[in-house]
Design a protein around this nucleic acid. Structure first.
Lengths: 162, 162
DNA sequence: GTCGATGCAAAGGGTTTGCAAGACG
DNA sequence: CGTCTTGCAAACCCTTTGCATCGAC
């Protein structure tokens, strides 16, 4: 938010260059889509369809390869909500390690909690289990109390389990 | 622990009957395998191979259908650690809602934490987000401090991401 | 030119489904 | 018989890969 999309693309461009990769038009367009849909947990196919609106000749494989590359460089995070497709999120501005999810079992809405509630537990894991945490995942499944009223966004109906 | 395998199968049998399903030999054998490998997070293929040792004529599709049925009845929990396969856990004796995971990125070991650390956070979710939690998922990714010494079990090497 | 990146189509791997046959009341 | 269940094979879906081509230094 404090940095513009162009600045962010520029920063990622440097990350790519440092690692010996190029920012091709296809990759740039993919990044634009990811930046414009931050926190939307797009699937590869969804990213593909959005990218194709801006760059019609792109191939699905390129999108997959780009997303895999960005995940390797920790620029995007690959996630799995159990609905059979991988989903991808930008990890800009350091809020990589600190968001959790609420998944409504009735309407399928998926909300993000933009806080890190787990620092205490991670210390506990380190002490009690000798395990140094580098990342975590916390999802709550349940129902919005006012879900039937539909005054919460319903992005998709997933068959997600766990 | 306090109940024998046969008692548990009997209990599940009743759950099946109530819902109009039968406990066929194939289903019973699948349940035996799941009970004998509780907390092992078996994949469908792994369950299949273990069941076939006891019941060689079973088909893979039957195992898939059985696991899906058991998941529907909340007898097993379907999980996904991002390695491309669904994994299944018995949910007996009420410890369904209270286990978390440690996933070692080096050796791939997967350990369970048999406590529920999230009751406080679930209250917070209810109050701050109007969201009634029915289930949750908490995984920590990281490294065992003594992992290189291999004195922790290493069940599998997964390409799990998040 | 060289080497990485791309598009296409084919292959891959896990899971689901259609269908005829079987089990059992 | 009727209904649920099974095994097999084919279909399905998402994802990856092989390969010839393209593009930028």
């Amino acid at each position: 938010m404090t940095t513009s999309i162009l600045e962010q693309i520029d920063k990622i461009n440097r990350q790519l260059t440092v690692n010996g990769y190029k920012l091709t038009p296809q990759r740039e367009t993919t990044l634009m889509v990811l930046l414009e849909n931050e926190k939307d947990h797009l699937s590869a196919e969804e990213v593909f369809m959005l990218v194709r609106q801006k760059y019609p000749d792109i191939g699905l494989a390129t999108v997959y390869r780009t997303l895999e590359l960005l995940a390797e460089l920790q620029i995007v995070q690959k996630m799995n909500f159990g609905d059979g497709v991988a989903r991808f999120d930008l990890r800009m501005e350091g809020h990589d390690h600190m968001h959790h999810h609420l998944v409504c079992k009735v309407c399928g809405a998926l909300e993000e909690i933009q806080e890190d509630w787990l620092t205490d537990l991670e210390q506990r894991v380190a002490q009690e289990y000798g395990f140094r945490v580098t990342d975590h995942r916390l999802d709550f499944m349940g129902v919005y109390q006012n879900c039937k009223n539909n005054n919460r966004p319903c992005k998709r109906t997933s068959k997600a389990v766990s």
